[in-house]
């Protein structure tokens, strides 16, 4: 197989990249691990590729006060191995360590992953649970987009033509305990369902909680009912059971049926994974 022809650009700056990307049919190329397979299959045939892979300004992982800042070009392998990520958003390190396989993680980037918004991908679930902010640069300047607003639908995000993700800002979760647990498809390892929990307890009582589900719906979803079921509880068996029922209801009729799993199964597995995630904390 061979991708369709395209014009190739290698901009020297983010500004130049944004300018090139605003042209019709232009696509950004970073790790290319979602884009190139689609191009090999000719599902995607962009007329122009803007290779942002050498824009070092988009690299790096740093902590700024109580915020973790991850450059868009950080690879899954870099994020998984980063002591900063492990400390401030442990579940993101877990999620990135389960994306694809070692070679894919060496080259695929977090920015590309979030922009692609595959509903079965792992990082969006964690990013949503942490109330992360996606920073972008476009022709009309910079934007800071809340994760809850960023993911719109299957493979659809709130990025305008020409707009590029520059970094992901995550409020430090170091005071909380986090887990990301997934039911991987046995061959592809994509999440049939994935659940992220970020929780704080005080004297055994859960007093802060965020839960997100991925894989089960068109886009990662916050499980507000399950959050309510656990908030204020001692995480006792009854509370966990109630939360498992609640998370199934949170997904509700948004649950996807496809060749891998039907909606009923996904709703049930979300409950199972939620209990596993809480036990893993």
């Amino acid at each position: 197989m061979c991708p369709a022809s395209f014009d190739y650009h290698r901009p020297a700056s983010v500004a130049e990249a944004v300018q090139l990307l605003s042209r019709p049919g232009a696509k950004a190329l970073a790790g290319g691990h979602s884009l190139i397979p689609a191009m090999n299959l000719r599902v995607a045939q962009p007329g122009e590729l803007v290779d942002i892979g050498r824009l070092d300004v988009l690299r790096g992982i740093r902590v700024d006060g109580n915020r973790l800042i991850i450059g868009a070009l950080s690879t899954h392998a870099q994020i998984a191995a980063s002591p900063e990520v492990q400390k401030h958003c442990a579940a993101l390190a877990t999620a990135c360590s389960t994306v694809g396989d070692p070679a894919v993680r060496n080259w695929g980037t977090i920015g590309g992953n979030l922009a692609h918004a595959d509903p079965a991908s792992d990082p969006p679930t964690v990013v949503l649970a942490c109330d992360a902010v996606i920073h972008t640069q476009g022709e009309n300047g910079q934007r800071a987009i809340k994760a809850a607003d960023f993911f719109v639908d299957v493979f659809t995000v709130d990025l305008q033509p020409g707009e590029l993700i520059t970094s992901i800002e995550i409020p430090s979760q170091s005071h909380r305990r986090m887990a990301y647990v997934k039911l991987p498809h046995p061959a592809s390892r994509y999440a049939v369902v994935g659940v992220c929990v970020s929780m704080h307890t005080s004297g055994g009582v859960c007093d802060q909680i965020a839960i997100a589900v991925g894989g089960a719906t068109a886009k990662a979803t916050r499980a507000t009912g399950a959050q309510s079921a656990l908030l204020g509880s001692l995480l006792e068996a009854e509370a966990l059971e109630a939360a498992a029922i609640a998370i199934s209801a949170d997904i509700g009729d948004q649950a996807v049926s496809d060749i891998y799993a039907n909606a009923t199964y996904r709703r049930a597995m979300a409950g199972v994974l939620l209990k596993r995630a809480v036990k893993a904390l």
């Binding site: 190739y8 190329l29 190139i36 090999n40 892979g53 894919v104 080259w107």
Partner: peptide, 13 residues
């Protein structure tokens, strides 16, 4: 020095 899949990388990269 790192393993990559050469079917998912353009030579220009």
């Amino acid at each position: 020095g790192r393993a990559i899949k050469s079917c998912t990388c353009f030579a220009v990269q």
